[in-house]
């Protein structure tokens, strides 16, 4: 099987676009939480889990993670996920609910109540809608998607590599949430099949060529 990769220029362009996409989500989240929330994506990577399972991201971290995921698409299809370490997820939920920041160490995965999962569902809904919707607009196709499912997952050391492995390519967007008192890091993953990935790469190349003309 031929392994698809992204050049540095392609990654840079994607990063630029993704930061615009996520900016809209940040505005919506800020309005929702009644406080300024800044979102940025400092790094975009295309990861083939079968080839590259050695990265040290949230994805390959072990322990409790909160994962929101939704399937999307028709011609451009895949699965979108927003993944946080559970302690960070609680910080984000508290910030959105106006609960004062108690420090990361105060939080325990067991502290996440059902209502917290609802808040995470809404946060994921806003972010993933924004990113996936804008990706589909970029490619010029319409995608269908639903409300994400949120779950608390314990990823053991042995499972680090197999988590999400059934998806071949993952566009990994390392995401920073800057809240008034805390800083939360998460990862947005757009898992794509080869066909959808090629659609995206073709579009990126088309944009790059138009710059060069």
């Amino acid at each position: 099987m031929q392994v698809i990769g992204l050049t540095e220029t392609q990654e840079d362009l994607l990063k630029e676009y993704v930061n615009v996409f996520i900016g809209k989500a940040a505005n919506m989240l800020s309005e929702m939480a009644n406080q300024r929330i800044l979102l940025s994506v400092p790094e975009v990577k295309l990861v083939n889990m079968a080839e590259d399972a050695a990265s040290d991201s949230v994805l390959t971290a072990h322990g409790h993670v909160v994962s929101s995921s939704m399937r999307f698409g028709k011609s451009f299809s895949g699965r979108a996920l927003l993944v946080f370490p559970s302690k960070k997820a609680k910080v984000l939920v508290d910030a959105c609910m106006g609960i004062p920041y108690a420090g990361d160490d105060e939080n325990d995965p067991q502290d996440l109540a059902d209502t917290d999962f609802d808040v995470l569902k809404e946060i994921s809904n806003v972010i993933l809608n924004s990113v996936v919707g804008d990706f589909s607009n970029l490619i010029g196709t319409h995608v269908d998607f639903s409300i994400p499912d949120v779950e608390l997952v314990f990823v053991s050391k042995d499972q680090q590599k197999s988590y999400l492995q059934d998806n071949v390519y993952m566009l990994t967007l390392y995401t920073n949430f800057l809240l008034s008192e805390a800083h939360v890091e998460g990862v947005i993953v757009i898992a794509l099949g080869v066909h959808s990935l090629n659609l995206l790469i073709d579009k990126i190349n088309e944009i790059l060529e138009s710059y060069n003309e």
Binding site: D116, D118, N125
Partner: peptide
């Protein structure tokens, strides 16, 4: 207009 579903949590 967009067809993008939204979820609004009562907690917020």
């Amino acid at each position: 207009s967009s067809g993008n579903s939204r979820f609004l949590s009562g907690a917020i």
